[in-house]
Design a binder for these strands. Structure first.
Lengths: 227, 227
DNA sequence: TGAGATTTGTACGTATGTATA
DNA sequence: GTATACATACGTACAAATCTC
């Protein structure tokens, strides 16, 4: 798709700091000529870049490159993926199959005897354990699941390998005090304040595919919106 | 603007539960005829509805209405405005002018002698105090500021009355324990866990116009993303 | 201050591609 | 396989905001 290519090209230029913050991008007509496409196509690419906070535009004026803080935390990935620019290690503390649990079955809206995968990972950033990540997934949806998958990216597995399509994504953020076990895993003191993010991933038709609870010790979460 | 009208019309139908969750909307061509506009215009309205989580579409299949949890907390307004559907009262606890403060001046990037407005409001939802909101704004930007404005909507004041345009918006969310004073205002116990949201509103060219710290006692914040 | 040029925004129409039913 | 429905892409015209001289 042309507009995707153009979007990627401009995005890379911005990420590689080819433009100064607030500096104007070429006008739409100029971009049409440069990429050899119609204005509709350029505007589609521009629209995506705007949505993700890379640029903004004003009628009569032009298109302008945003400073990095506008787009850095924009893409709603797994919270831990947000930290991928740092040296990141993942330690799988636990990996179980055939877990049965009444509350889980209710949450996932499946038969009470259903089996779940369960794994617990600790994310280590710059040699410091920062995030505990505990995940449950129904086994009947993911038959090819292995420990190897858990050691890599679950997100990618769902999107590319499993054949399912992710429909939406809900996160609930709250402040909590660390339990004894959590404190131990994170080298912190019991009752220290942390953020708990419960994360549900849904497939088409609102089928819940994954439930994750993250405990994150860097006690903040940042959201930037561009008008 | 036609596409805005169409967007509003369909949005209202969805909010008023004229459609069942997951039920198909009319096709694009049908909507063109109904509203008497081109397909481009329909697609612009559809695109906005998608962005805000009201609907989703799949190629070859159709356009489908999302269930309420997709769109309820979508719009990034002031966090307290998110609760406007409940009976909401605002109590202005403090309103000061001519506040000088070194840290504030640095944060706003203005001369150290600059004056700030400062006000502290408590938001009362269903008769229960839930949110403490403390705001600082530089006086030189907002000359017409009065206590009356503070008692109503600050957001509207900036957008409509002051003549400035909001460029972007950053929020930082963290877990905190209530101080003695905060606990008193919220009828809670000292050291109870709450969420603190620091909120910065920027005008064009990254001019910081408002700094708000919210302490919110309902200890969660929900984000839903639709792919 | 004002008129004209520039630039993005809105809207129309048409044709073809691609996923789904 | 065919029909349907959304997705992509082209081109054109005019409106509205902004910038420049």
């Amino acid at each position: 798709m042309k507009y995707i290519d153009i979007y990627e090209d401009i995005k890379q230029r911005i990420l590689n700091k080819k433009y100064q913050s607030w500096s104007p991008l070429d006008g739409e007509v100029m971009l049409c000529n440069y990429y050899g496409v119609s204005r509709t196509t350029i505007r589609k690419a521009i629209s995506m870049l705007k949505k993700e906070g890379f640029i903004h535009s004003r009628q009569g004026s032009g298109i302008f490159v945003n400073p990095p803080e506008f787009y850095e935390d924009q893409n709603l990935k797994s919270l831990s993926e947000m930290l991928d620019s740092h040296t990141l290690k993942t330690k799988v503390v636990k990996f179980e199959k055939n877990v049965k649990n009444k509350e889980l079955s209710e949450m996932f809206n499946v038969h009470p005897d259903s089996n779940f995968f369960h794994y617990l990972r600790v994310r280590i950033i710059d040699e410091v354990p920062k995030v505990i990540e505990e995940t449950y997934m129904p086994e009947f949806l993911f038959k090819e699941m292995t420990k190897e998958v858990v050691e890599k990216s679950m997100f990618e597995f769902i999107e590319n390998t499993s054949g399912y399509k992710i429909s939406h994504d809900s996160k609930e953020i709250k402040g909590v005090q660390l339990t004894k076990d959590e404190a131990k895993l994170l080298n912190h003191k019991e009752n220290d304040i942390a953020l708990e993010i419960t994360h549900k991933v849904y497939l088409i038709k609102s089928i819940l595919a994954q439930y994750t609870k993250e405990i994150i010790i860097d006690n903040f979460f940042k959201v930037i919106t561009v008008k």
